[in-house]
Amino acid sequence: MFDFWSIVRRFLYMLFVLWIVATIIFFMFRLMPGSPLTAFIGTTFTDEQHDLLVKRFGLDKSLFEQYTLFIVNTLKGDFGLSFTYNKPVINMIIEALPNSIILTLFSLVIAYIFGVIAGAYLAWKRATFIEGFSIPIVLTTRSAPEFWLGMIALAFFSFQLDIFPSGGTSAAGVIYETTLSKLTSLHFYYHLILPSLVLALYLQGLPLLLMRSNMLEVMQEDFVTMSKMKGLSSWRIVIYHAARNALLPVATAFTLGVGFAFGGNVVIETVFSWPGLGRLLVFAVSSSDYPLAQGAFIFLTAILILMNFLADLLYLFLDPRVSYKTKN
């Protein structure tokens, strides 16, 4: 059915793309105007202190040496020290990562469950008033900037009605001891509701439209006509025969969506002060904290590329008509 080596080759190719992206990012940050330490060094610093810092962050070496060091360290999982926090970047990323993962998965699951059901329903109601009414609404929610939806939700639900917290992952003063205690705290999920619903509202359009068009396509295939002739009820046809086949591309889109949503979370995390990877990146870039920005960016890219790779594999397993052997 599939060739083991072609998958290995694709995996290696994925690593190659990641390496190129890491290289581009490295040079973009190095070639930025201004010294990378301007944001970090206070005016009261003496020359010795300045030199010490330059040495500490490895900025006295040549660009090529810095690059090789960067690649070697990245392979070891060492992204250097954050300029602003003076902490290892990797620790900060590991701290932010669970927040981003949970926000993304939560919203995607809500969006896809809703999208798939609503999409199948709208395909069934083809050319009716309901369809003509719903499709423009779906297109409109897809066109709204996520952060604007977030702002409206915050103004209304948090500030006016005061039923949801206005941001962050915990109430003022509450600090979670460990990641585990955070993830098992009801408080955390209470804070999660508003951002994940807003994100889901934005994300549901794609599965909905995809499911709808797949359903329309599948409904015209011979086996559906056959089931109709057999006298099966239309519900049975929709659920057991058409929907199952229409779900294939949606499953792939979900996997791709994880990678995509991760990058797009930047704005949602900022609006809701959600301490995830995207907000870390925004902070790092705006405060010229290059090691941190580099680390966060490489992580976001790795997740995106990995998800693209998994989507390819998933497609291969779910749809036997696609074969890597014949494709290559």
Binding site: V17, I20, V21, M32, G263, V267, G278, L281, A293, F297
Partner: peptide, 19 residues
């Protein structure tokens, strides 16, 4: 094209804007 599609969109725009 593969590399361009491998870059996370909004994060890249932010870095580019800073650059």
């Amino acid at each position: 094209a593969d590399i361009a599609l491998g870059l996370p969109f909004l994060p890249f725009v932010i870095v580019l804007a800073a650059f």
